[in-house]
């Protein structure tokens, strides 16, 4: 990456079913979106331990997305209810960490919603561009 220009580095924790399917569909339908989000594939969004999100920020991620099936559509029936609860807790933790709440995003997308996936990534990337680099990272707090 060239110095000077800020390229947001975004981690996307993505469930293997609907939301990974939507990401695939965005590709299959050639819906172009910025390459800033990198997917970590998990079986369910319910697998996302809040610690993982916090560690992401500590390690310098500029943004973190948690993506899953729409509420009610989780492949494991209720896994993403947990995700929702944990996500609210995480949003509060953002404040404590001194991070802008928009650095954290929850995206529900079904396997037929490639467009939603792409839009989610576009929005997130441009929002992070506005907010700027992760201050923890900038503060040299990298492990």
């Amino acid at each position: 990456m060239k110095s000077g220009k800020f390229e947001p580095n975004i981690v996307a924790f993505t469930c293997n079913w609907c939301s990974y399917g939507s990401a695939d569909l965005a590709g299959i339908s050639r819906i172009q979106h910025p390459p800033n989000a990198k997917v970590i594939r998990l079986m369910c969004s319910g697998r996302v331990d809040p610690v993982m999100v916090i560690e992401s920020f500590k390690n310098g991620a500029d943004g973190v997305m948690v993506t899953g099936c729409h509420i009610g559509d989780c492949h494991y029936s209720t896994g993403n209810y947990r995700t929702k609860v944990r996500f609210s807790a995480l949003q509060k933790a953002m404040k404590v960490m001194g991070l802008h709440p928009d650095r954290l995003k929850l995206l529900w997308a079904s396997a037929s919603e490639g467009q939603q996936w792409a839009e989610g990534i576009i929005e997130m990337t441009s929002r992070i561009r506005e907010i700027g680099p992760n201050p923890i990272n900038g503060g040299g707090l990298v492990k």
Binding site: M1, I40, M52, N59, N137, V142
Partner: peptide, 13 residues
């Protein structure tokens, strides 16, 4: 999972 995070973020920095 964590090792993927580290691999992504540390090298990018």
């Amino acid at each position: 999972i964590m090792t993927m995070l580290e691999a992504l973020l540390q090298l990018s920095t």
